[in-house]
Amino acid sequence: MGKVFSNFVSPLKYLFIWGYFSLTFGLFIWVLITSFKSNREIFSNPFGLPESFNIDNYIFALFDVNMVMYLLNSLIVAVATVLLCFVLGSTVSYALSRFEFKGNTFLYLLFIIGLTIPLQSLIYPMFFKMHTLGLRDTIFGIIIVYTALNLPKTVFLLVGFMKGIPKEMEEAAIIDGCNYWNVFSKVVIPMSKPVLATVGILVFIAAWNEYIFATVLISSDVTKTLPLGLASFQSSHLSEYGLIAAGVIISIIPVLIAYILFQEQIIKGMASGAVKG
């Protein structure tokens, strides 16, 4: 009985996993193929291969529509956000995880509250705050906002990890005459590398892909990040599908390369960040 059932299930199982695979992979490949086509080809033969691998769309997207600039902006924003989260997050997490003092739990909870709030509901006060500070429509402003939004997650993951570092290491270092700064920079930070990698990846991908806050805060072309550039690019070149497809591919490639290189870490990091965040 069990055997019969299993025999019936097996083909369904393969149909399911490869069917879903084809949907996901197929969509990606189709966008890739479309990016090499001219509009005429797209309309006459939507599924077929392009007549030739024409990279005109890419050249136009990168240089004429200036995606190079958007790419650069996104890179600056994402890297700076990660670094700022590291600096602000690791210091406070060190204090919260390694010291006992009055108000420790309260401070920790203050940071953790941030995890429960749907961040997108903060668009209005963020918009007006940046406006008042004169930071609206600046790269610096968007970095500040992204850092603030990612801080609860950063502190949560770092404190959780740092609590697990054995205290003896530090005590030994203190006895050897290290001050707290040395303990922090020479013992705790090196030992926290795995969790810093996770945080770095999570924050980088979040900043790289973020759209809602970017669209609220940024208006001029020179400050646009990639998702914003891509979206505005679509509205200005409405029916140039090959070009838009090229833009999509360009925006995916950097994250895809990072993903292929650090796959295990990214998958684990996203899963733990999502579960705990």
Binding site: P46, Y211, Y241, S251, Y259
Partner: peptide
């Protein structure tokens, strides 16, 4: 399979939306 299944998660919502706008496009959409 796991590698491919996870790709959408790291793709930006804008890229995903544009890809889906191609699927739904009235004239040449998939």
């Amino acid at each position: 399979l796991r590698t491919v299944y996870f790709i959408p998660v790291i793709t930006s919502s804008v890229a995903v939306s544009l890809a889906f706008s191609f699927i739904y496009e009235a004239q040449f959409g998939i």
